[in-house]
Design a protein around this nucleic acid. Sequence first.
DNA 1: CTTTTAATGACCATTATGTTGATTAGCAAT
DNA 2: ATTGCTAATCAACATAATGGTCATTAAAAG
Lengths: 193, 193
Amino acid sequence: MAEKIHDQMVERTRRLIQDTMLLLIEDTGFSHVTVRNLTQKAQINRGTFYLHYLDKYDLIEQMEDELLNGLRQSMHTIKYPDMLQCYEENAPYFPLVEVFRYLKQNGRLLKGLLGPKGDPAFSQKMRLFLKDGIFADFIDSLEDETISKSYFSAFATSAYLGIIEDWLNHGMQQSPEEMAVIYAKIKFFGMKP
Amino acid sequence: MAEKIHDQMVERTRRLIQDTMLLLIEDTGFSHVTVRNLTQKAQINRGTFYLHYLDKYDLIEQMEDELLNGLRQSMHTIKYPDMLQCYEENAPYFPLVEVFRYLKQNGRLLKGLLGPKGDPAFSQKMRLFLKDGIFADFIDSLEDETISKSYFSAFATSAYLGIIEDWLNHGMQQSPEEMAVIYAKIKFFGMKP
DNA sequence: CTTTTAATGACCATTATGTTGATTAGCAAT
DNA sequence: ATTGCTAATCAACATAATGGTCATTAAAAG
């Protein structure tokens, strides 16, 4: 089968391109990346890039979408009531641990995209994802009608993402299990000392 | 006095340049702004731009710094214990109202910088500011030592900024007074329905 | 009328883009 | 092995855009 081999070649090249894009984001920032730049660093021909992607925006979009699809996978078993129960038992909620594991696997890319040299659109993209994936049922369960759901979900998703960013920025020193506990603790703690 | 008139000219031109930058951020996004582009829209000579700023990054930095300096001004009277007391009386905490007033005055620029076409570095800049300006004494007052201060402040500042962004994205329909109440309510509410 | 300073217009070197025709590499069938 | 097929790669081209500078002009003030 010729296809198989060729698919492998294609996959190899695409990985190389994506890896180089991440390197350049970390180095000079996404906005400064050019196709020339990228292909030089990856030591491939510029034409090769255009064989796989339309432009650098097409590339980053595919990278982001793959990342978020994996995230969706890892989030789909989260149930809010179980999370609350785990918190009360001071135990890490397993589906949440899975999410942090996945985030850790893709930590470099996440940090790059969310950081000061990243894609300014990605943060919102990700918060939308979190809202649907983690907070949907939680927000629905809100009983206090004097609290706007829109503001509350903005609050919750941003807060969650803030913790993730802080984790990434400190080299992901805590284990996914620890992070699940830390998150639950802060989340249910409230802000009144 | 020659200086006065010339200062007025300079001020006029700088305002024009800054206003045009904001227009272009809203339109094509900061990363796509070029000096050529900008000066064309502002109908001034390209050389004139370089007479006032080094490049577009110098320009945006000055715009951001002015914004944040004003914010610092408006935040400097915030005292956490008073805020808590206001919350318990269900009253808007005045210094917080002042902050929201200031944010509203600069709403367009803020929304542009924080949005998907903005400056990916600005969000962090702003959160650092909020941390020092609003949350410093609050975080210090945290007694629960099992909660990491770093994660907690990441949580708090991101959450606060999240609410602000949501407000901006919905056209700042609520008054600064309302926002001060909404914020306090969510903040002290905790996340356990 | 002279001085000062902002604004202008034009210039040049550099860099990015996207495409196309030629070339190479890998695999299969004989 | 060798021939043929397919897909990936490469080198080169034409076009367009960008950035920064400098000599020149215009405007304001005394």
